[in-house]
């Protein structure tokens, strides 16, 4: 049992009005203090390299996709969000994906694909917004997933740093 000892109110406090005026003064002062609202779509929260947003595919500086369609991420994905079809290329690296779809409605942003990838081809970007009017529109294909290495650079550096510990 908890006994709460209440303070005896003084005469002026019991008169209501002075205390009410005091409260009004406080709220009036508050009106001129700086406001804390963030105007979200225009002023997005700054993200860091640690932010684990939606997975994106890296495009190397020579314009080719880094992915070799090995299927490791497809296998690692616990939500079965990734679908890959591979094809051959004439380049030194003989394979690249023909189709690389991520169903963003299934994706749980766990980052397993990033960990599984042997070629630094898929990274968790800092992109967090996801909206569409249809379900089909949220199945992103390869073109929608491609990002240049430079945009993903902070995350790439971070992942390398983490992996260096092993």
């Amino acid at each position: 049992m908890v006994v709460v000892q209440r303070r005896e109110l003084t005469f002026w406090e019991r008169m209501y009005l002075p205390e009410i005026v005091r409260g009004l003064v406080i709220t009036f002062k508050k009106m001129f203090e700086p406001r804390v609202t963030r105007q979200y779509p225009e002023q997005a929260m700054p993200t860091t390299a640690v932010t684990r947003g939606q997975p994106r595919l890296t495009v190397k500086d020579d314009g080719n996709i880094a992915c070799v369609s090995c299927g490791l991420c497809e296998a690692a994905c616990p939500a079965y969000a990734i679908t890959i079809d591979g094809k051959e290329t004439d380049r030194f690296i003989e394979r690249e994906p023909e189709r690389f779809d991520i169903d963003m409605l299934r994706c749980i942003l766990c980052g397993f694909c990033e960990e599984a990838c042997p070629k630094e081809a898929i990274f968790m970007s800092n992109e967090l917004e996801l909206a569409n009017t249809t379900r089909e529109g949220l199945v992103y294909d390869m073109e929608q997933l491609k990002r240049s290495t430079s945009t993903l650079q902070p995350r790439i550096d971070y992942v390398r740093k983490i992996n260096d510990r092993w």
């Binding site: 508050k30 700086p34 406001r35």
Partner: peptide, 13 residues
């Protein structure tokens, strides 16, 4: 608007 001001918010804009 005034309630927003008092609560350090912006209100409808």
């Amino acid at each position: 608007k005034i309630s927003a001001r008092i609560q350090l918010r912006i209100g409808p804009n």
